[in-house]
Structure formats: C-alpha cells, structure tokens
Design a protein around this nucleic acid. Structure first.
Lengths: 306, 306
DNA sequence: GGTCTTGATAGAATTCTTCTATTAATGAGG
DNA sequence: CCTCATTAATAGAAGAATTCTATCAAGACC
C-alpha cells in the first residue's frame, strides 16, 4: 500500500515539476523525496515520472495517480478538520434521547439558549420510552439521555438536573378544581387516568394512586400526555401530570385545569445519563450547568438541583 | 498527519467493534492495533473509541472519522487499480500526435485493428503541423508522434514505420494523365501547387520541384491536402501528394487523377517518435509492430519498413 | 471464586524513513 | 572547448516508527 506521505510527495512534485522545490515544500530533503517517489512507483508497479535530468515530466498514469492523490489528501484534510472542530466542546452533533413525557415540554425551554450560546452544537433528538432509550444509550446509538432518575445501571453515570412537581389535572368543573391546591387525601376514590405501561410516569402515577387510595384506571390508558388530557376533558377521570407539561399544554387553556398538591408535592427527578466510558462526559457536565441556568430563569416552578 | 495504516485499523475496528478480530483482519497483532489507534487519536486530538473492556463503541466523531476513512481507503484502492490496469500494456490512454497530411488517411487504416486487439487502449489523437507537434511531445502533452522522418533531436527516439510514395495529382484531362506512370522529366515547366510552409510535405514538394525543374507556385498555397486537390481540379496546376491520401481521397473519384512516378519514386518516410526518457518506449515498439502488420495487409501500395 | 475473554502496557526487535555527503548528467556562459 | 552551476540519483549512517512477544488488569460468565 502506498503511504500518505508518498502521495503527498507525488502531489508536490506534480505541482512543482521539480524535485528539490517539491521536497522543500514538503519540508524534507531532495533525496528523501526521490527515494520515496521511487518507492511509490515500486509499490504501484508503474513509472509515474519521467526523470529527464533536465526536466521532470509526469507520465499519463502519473498525472492520473497524482490527481487521485490530491483527492485522497483532501479527504484526509477534511477528516482532520472534523476532528479539530470536535475538540471545541459543544460544537458537534450530540445524539440526545429523551422520554416522551418530557421532550416536547423541556426542550423548547432550553434549546434557544443552547443554540444561541453554541451555534455549532447540533442536537439530534430522539424521543422514546424508557426501555428503548436505555438500550440505545447502551449500544452507542445515543450519547446522552434526559431521563427520570434514579436509573440504577453501573455502566451509566447520572447527574440530577431538576425536580419536577406532579400536578393534578382535572376537568374545569370538577369538585377538586375549587381549591387552589389539592390535599392528597381528597384524591381517595377518584379515577386516575394514566399512560400505558412502559412509561416511567405510569409507574409513578400508580404509586401515588396507591398511596392516596385513588383508583388507577386500567380500561383507558393514554399513549401520550395529550391524549390523556383529552380523556380528562371528557370527564373519564383525573390525571397526574408533570409540571413542565402543565406549563406548556394545560396552563393556557381552560377545558381542564391543573392544581398543585398541598404540602410536599410528589415529583419526579429528571437527570442526564451517559455511558461511564463516554468520551464526552465533561461536555455533558458543561451542558448540564447551562441547562440549570436556563431553567432557573425560564421555569421557576421547578426545583433546579445540583 | 494520520497514516493510511492507522485509518485502515480504525475502519477495521469500526467494522468488527473488536480489537483482536480487527487486528487479525489487518494481519497484525492486537497490541499493534491498540497502539496505532491510540496514536491516531493523539494525532487527531479526539477520542474515537470508547474502550469499555466489555465492549467497543465508536464515539460520534469516531464514526464520522471512520466513515471518511473508508472514503480515503477507497480512493487509494482506485489509485492502485489504475496503476494495475496501466501495467497491462496497450490498455491505457495514449496521447498521439500526427501530422495533418497523414492522420485522417493513416489512422482509419490502423485504428480498427488496434481497437479490436486492445479494446482498452484509448487513443487521444491530436493533429497539427510539425513544429507544434514536436513542442507538445517535448513538454509532455503528447506521448508519441506519427511523423515524417528524419527528425534529428537527440532527446527523441525514432522508429521507421513505412515509406509512402509521393504521387502526382493532375486534372483528369491533363496531358500528363495519358500515361499510367509519370516520367519525372515530364514535370519540367509544370506549375506545382503545395501546402503552406510549416508542413514537412511543403519542403519535400519544393525539393522535388527544384530537382525536376517544375515551378512551385507561391501564389496559392493550400492549408490542407483537400483544398489543394480542389485547386488542382480547377486547373491551377498539379500537385504532389502522398500515397495514403491518394488512396483515401483521390482514387475513388475522377475530377482529378493520381499517377505514380516511373522508376524509383520520391517518397516520404513515416515513423514514430517519442521522448527517449518515456516510460512507455516498449509499448510504442509493440504498437509499431502491430501497425506494420496491419499496413502490410490493408495498404500494399506502401513499403512497410523494419 | 475461579476461569475466560478483552484491551492496555512495557520493552525489545525490526523495519522504514530521513538525513548528509557525494556522484553523474546536463545546460549555460565565457 | 572548458568550466561552473544545477539537477536528480545513490550510498551509507542515524533516527524514528512500527510491530512483536510477553504480561497485566478488568469484567463477564459459570
């Protein structure tokens, strides 16, 4: 196989048609370039250059090979440029996974700031349910997750971002809507609508329901928080939804209303998760810091952690 | 600069996601591949691979770099293939220069055979007058010439192909047309039309005219043999033209006729010329051999040499 | 808890690359 | 015609790099 160095020498020679000057451009001596060019000819099995003593002429094949060589060197240069760009943190594509119950309501809050501060940071976002995300993170298809904690996996490193209160979502004319805050005890006997199993939020809602003696509906399970909200609006029951969803989709309309719990509200903790072996851990921590700053400003209703 | 070897290793690792197997494919030991990959990461300044002990995962940039690397290796492979194809003689582009008074009448005779025997031989043909052709050969724009000999240039190597008789071309009703062959002495006093200066044929015609006491016309000089033939047809004079042109353009029509000289006819010798330093000399000799064979068959009126 | 597999590491051997010094060939100029 | 300058090739030594063998450390698996 020819070496890149040899290709460099050939291209330089094609440019200068002069051994000494070509060698100079490559920062080597003329015998070095002579020898390597001969070696290249040997490896390719063809004569690339007519050495005329008086003059240097590329053969037809020499011209073709050096043209191709130019392409090779250009590609290698681009490869190096890619790597250089990567070295500046938060300036390359980051493949992000986020649970469905969070992505559409969190990302619009943080992405504008991120984009403004790091215009070269590309976010490739994939939404999914817990299982699929963890698998993708594991096999390297994703770099980092925004995910409900805790997530007990030794090979992952996690970092808490914020605690997001769970609110009660009820029809506007529901009896519970009368109070500004919901006493957990008043949930007893209510029908709670929840997402289908597989969502982390489903488990959490089930837990809260059990704790306060509410009935978890198994007949109707939503595939998204939006369908769940529609179901609540038809009077099929009430639901428990995270604060960022409420902020985004419930607060500004009035078919259903959201009420916080009284006292210490149930909440879910959202954090970032990446492979412990990831090369970009530092970058993720940097990112977390910025996200916290942004959230403190744009979403005071959640408790930023760390 | 990364080396091609390192790129090979990275691509192999990207394929196998396994150091030992990747090393095996590359025909080296695992520590070699490990070390070179680390070296590559050092040179690029980025982490390409997450070394998880349990598993190997490419980083995002690692994927991008290895994809680019695949492109680099492919280009290098094509370069090698080009060189390999070149090694089979008469299978690459040959840049041929030929004098205007010969090209259109010789090449149709020899190209069909050449193409049949060497389908991959590409002939790039450029016609021109002597001076321009010699300059192009000299500076490497052409590989070989078909050219009237002798051509005394120490840096060129020549090889005779054939001797082409010069015929007398005359209007059909001309007094000279009565005989089957022309006695040179009968040319005395005739007006001879010739090509403009710069053509080798012009010099030769002038010489013959002087020898036999004919008048070389300076008022009308043709830029091509075809215009010369038209001028002969209008009765402006007679002309001297080489046998292959006669065969091609005069024999099958009857406004003008061609007559050979009686006895030892004047002739021009056509040969091949290339730079002594050319890498393809052997190929040219091979080519000459085939051309001679072909000409013996398709053009018995010329004397094949060598 | 032992065994197997995997990739990293250390140090030696070898192979490649490059350098300096010199030679051979060519062309220019007196 | 004879130097002088220029150019690329060559030889041999020095230096750099790659690769190898042997070994280690960390998980995975039973």
């Amino acid at each position: 196989m020819p070496t890149l160095q040899q290709i460099r020498y050939l291209v330089a020679l094609a440019d200068h048609l002069h051994f000494r000057r070509a060698a100079e451009e490559c920062g080597v001596t003329q015998p070095t370039l002579s020898a390597q060019l001969k070696e290249l000819e040997g490896r390719l099995g063809v004569t690339l250059v007519e050495r005329n003593r008086a003059r240097v002429i590329l053969t037809e094949i020499g011209r073709k090979v050096s043209d191709r060589g130019r392409g090779v060197l250009r590609e290698v240069e681009e490869m190096r440029a890619m790597a250089r760009a990567e070295q500046a943190p938060l300036s390359a594509v980051m493949r992000v996974g986020v649970v469905q119950t969070l992505g559409p309501y969190l990302l619009p809050l943080i992405v504008p700031d991120l984009h403004a501060n790091h215009p070269k940071l590309g976010l490739y976002v994939r939404e999914g349910i817990a299982d699929a995300l963890v698998r993708s993170l594991d096999d390297g298809a994703l770099d980092v997750l925004f995910f409900p904690l805790p997530l007990a996996r030794a090979e992952f490193e996690t970092l808490s971002l914020f605690r997001e209160p769970i609110h009660v979502v009820i029809p506007q004319d529901h009896r519970l809507a009368e109070a500004d805050q919901i006493d957990p005890a008043t949930l007893r006997g209510e029908t709670i609508l929840s997402l289908e199993p597989g969502h982390r939020l489903n488990e959490q809602v089930r837990l809260i329901s059990e704790t306060y003696g509410a009935e978890l509906s198994h007949d109707f399970e939503g595939t998204s928080l939006d369908t769940l909200r529609q179901m609540v609006a038809t009077g099929m029951g009430v639901s428990l939804m995270p604060a960022l969803y409420v902020k985004s989709e419930v607060a500004h309309q009035d078919i259903v209303v959201a009420r916080p719990f009284r006292g210490a509200p149930p909440s879910r903790t959202i954090g970032m998760v990446w492979r412990r072996s990831s090369a970009r851990a530092e970058e993720f921590r940097l990112l977390a810091g910025e996200i916290r700053q942004t959230l403190k400003r744009v979403a005071p209703e959640i408790a930023v952690l760390g």
